[in-house]
Design a protein around this nucleic acid. Structure first.
Length: 299
DNA sequence: GCGTCCAGGTCTACC
DNA sequence: GGTAGACCTGGACGC
């Protein structure tokens, strides 16, 4: 069964920039088609139906979501797909104060011109935390492999190629050998069991009233989440107070601003300090600038 | 084909 | 509080 949903998007939303702005688009159950400029995601709906939603911007301002399922989709299913897409693409995120701040920096004028700044996230904080843990101390290729394996082994099947992301309950019920995420396996299972048991409510973090530094300490209470991973999770929650410096960003910063000479974390912190609560996002935009799509090239 | 290194870090024991 | 060493995995690289 196929159904097309048409979703109106904000004027400052650049679909492919958002998809392409980080590696999250390549972690299962997300997948992308660069040639068609399409982003897909396999998702289990509240009704129990499993769908594959493929997003494309065929005309400016309107996102077409092609939803495929083995079953007939009702209005409630369609509305849920819309909500999932809006959440993943952060359509409700207000970047006006970032654009206003960067107005004082000509070298960043391209950010507003290209409607950059949004990055993909998962429908649940649980999924984002699991993927962040899987991204530590390994190559990106391995992160993709582990995410794909988690879906195939623990997720629900739509087709041979399409599986959902595992629920906390599914992950909590498995052994370390089954999860197969290396030394991270016990961390993932412990996280899932705490979530299932109600000891940890990671979904509440998106609306947490806590100060970012306080929330960061709470996030670091998860085993396998250290300084870098906590910063990265905060970014996925829409908080950019911290830089989430990893080896790739440090190397990249030295190439762009240090003429290849490695700078200290303190120097990098100082460089982006003027951008206040947006500094983590400004760092990311600065380091990924060449990957951003110039306005006018979007389809 | 095999061994080694290392990659988008974190934990723990020890000082 | 600071630091060294161990840790899964798999691709890249040298031999």
């Amino acid at each position: 069964m196929k159904r097309d949903i048409h979703l109106t998007v904000p004027g400052d939303f650049n679909f492919w920039n958002t998809v392409w702005s980080s590696g999250w688009c390549g972690l299962a159950p997300f997948s992308f088609d660069e040639e068609r400029r399409a982003l897909s995601r396999v998702q289990r709906l509240a009704s129990g139906k499993i769908v594959n939603a493929t997003m494309m911007e065929r005309r400016k301002g309107v996102l077409t979501i092609r939803v495929e399922s083995r079953e007939e989709l009702g209005e409630a299913d369609a509305e849920e797909v819309e909500e999932v897409v809006e959440g993943c693409l952060r359509l409700d995120e207000d970047l006006s104060s970032l654009y206003a701040l960067l107005g004082g920096y000509p070298e960043f004028s391209w950010v507003e011109e290209t409607c950059a700044g949004r990055t993909i996230r998962s429908p649940t904080v649980f999924e984002d935390v699991v993927k962040t843990i899987c991204s530590t101390n390994c190559s990106w290729a391995l992160t993709k492999a582990v995410a794909g394996r988690l879906c195939r082994r623990l997720g629900e099947r739509l087709s041979e190629e399409h599986y959902t992301f595992p629920t906390p309950a599914r992950m909590a019920s498995k052994t370390e050998e089954f999860v197969r995420a290396g030394y991270r396996s016990p961390y993932l299972i412990e996280l899932a069991r705490r979530v299932v048991g109600g000891a940890l409510d990671v979904e509440a973090w998106r609306d947490s009233p806590l100060d970012s530094a306080v929330l960061k300490r709470e996030i670091m209470g998860i085993k396998g989440v250290g300084d870098y991973a906590a910063d990265q999770i905060l970014k996925l929650l829409g908080r950019y107070d911290f830089l989430a410096l990893d080896s790739w960003l440090r190397r990249r910063f030295s190439q762009i601003h240090g003429e290849g000479v490695k700078g200290s974390d303190g120097e990098i912190e100082g460089f982006y300090a003027p951008f206040g609560r947006w500094r983590g996002l400004v760092l990311w935009l600065d380091m990924t600038r060449e990957f951003q799509i110039p306005k006018g090239r979007e389809s």
